[in-house]
């Protein structure tokens, strides 16, 4: 296989783009404790993608992505609706997650053909990513970077102090809905690359790794992207060398990086500066 093989470049580009968008959005998911939303969203996407296959749209990746996205967005909005009405976020996700998973199970059970394609959406099939799916990843990456870049300060504020942000005049509910929709979009376009079960790891682990080394949210985003891109490229190379599942390999590397980061985190050592401040305070 040539190193500059266009197919190989497409595979690596898909992995890098999926890891970039997952790791950026992952920062807000980890800090706001929305990990369960990411998992629910991925499974709702699976229901949407399965429906596309059931309807015979197997050769129409754009239609599949849009259906997956529609299911994931509806799941996110339904969750936010329940949360706005006083249901705790984790409970709301639990209810909606189960609902969409049940739908996915029923639809997958009804699909007679293309069972390997379905498994591609469950566990990821990065080697089977089409140029249209790569295009969708690219457009999503641009949109995510633009939205997060423009509203980074606002998202930072609602993450740190939602009540203070609302009292300052920030549209907390709107920003919250935007974030949930972004999570839904990111998980649905990454579905083919990483799979419904594993995409959740690529969202959470790079952000968690980054959190171990910085006290600034801007740096956390940068470190999260670096960890995710490193994991996806290393994971792909390992999968080619040992002929194992690419998405599983990426997730294994990402999880290892995360565990190493937690073990080596300077935040877990006694902070001399903190101690000095506290002694001074007394």
């Amino acid at each position: 296989m040539k190193v500059l093989d266009p197919y190989l470049i497409q595979v690596f580009m898909s992995a890098v783009l999926a890891s970039v968008i997952c790791s950026i959005i992952g920062v807000f998911i980890v800090l706001r404790g929305l990990s369960f939303v990411g998992a629910g969203s991925a499974h709702a996407s699976l229901a949407g993608a399965s429906l596309a296959l059931f309807l015979g749209l197997v050769n129409q990746p754009l239609a599949t992505i849009l259906l997956a996205m529609a299911f994931a967005i509806s799941m996110a909005l339904f969750t936010a609706y329940l949360s706005d009405r006083g249901v705790k976020m984790d409970v709301a996700v639990g209810v909606v997650f189960a609902l969409y998973m049940a739908l996915a199970v029923i639809i997958i059970g009804m699909i007679r053909e293309y069972s390997s394609t379905v498994w591609g959406y469950v566990f990821g099939d990065i080697l089977g990513v089409s140029s249209i799916e790569l295009m969708a990843l690219s457009v999503t990456a641009i949109a995510v970077m633009l939205i997060i870049g423009l509203f980074f300060d606002a998202f930072k504020f609602i993450t740190f102090d939602p009540e203070g942000a609302e009292a300052c005049g920030l549209p907390y509910k709107t920003l919250n809905y935007v974030m949930l929709v972004l999570i839904a979009v990111v998980t649905s376009v990454s579905l083919k690359c990483i799979g419904a079960i594993l995409v959740f790891t690529l969202i959470v682990t790079p952000a968690l790794s980054a959190h171990q080394f910085t006290h600034k949210m801007e740096n956390m985003v940068i470190l999260s992207v670096i960890a995710a891109v490193f994991s996806s490229i290393t994971g792909l190379v390992i999968s080619f060398v040992f002929n194992i599942s690419a998405s599983a390999s990426i997730v294994l590397v990402s999880s290892t990086v995360c565990m190493a980061s937690i073990a080596l985190s300077p935040k877990r050592k006694l902070c001399k500066e903190c101690l000095e401040i506290k002694i001074f305070e007394r």
Binding site: L31, K156, F160
Partner: peptide, 30 residues
């Protein structure tokens, strides 16, 4: 027109923000 100081314990101290970040947040609404 209002500067609001909520109860400190509603904030999550694991969020990576600096003093500069927190104070500049006050300007967002205005």
């Amino acid at each position: 027109l209002i500067g609001y100081v909520p109860q400190k314990d509603v904030m999550d101290l694991s969020i990576p923000v600096t003093v500069k970040d927190v104070v500049s947040m006050g300007l967002y609404g205005r």
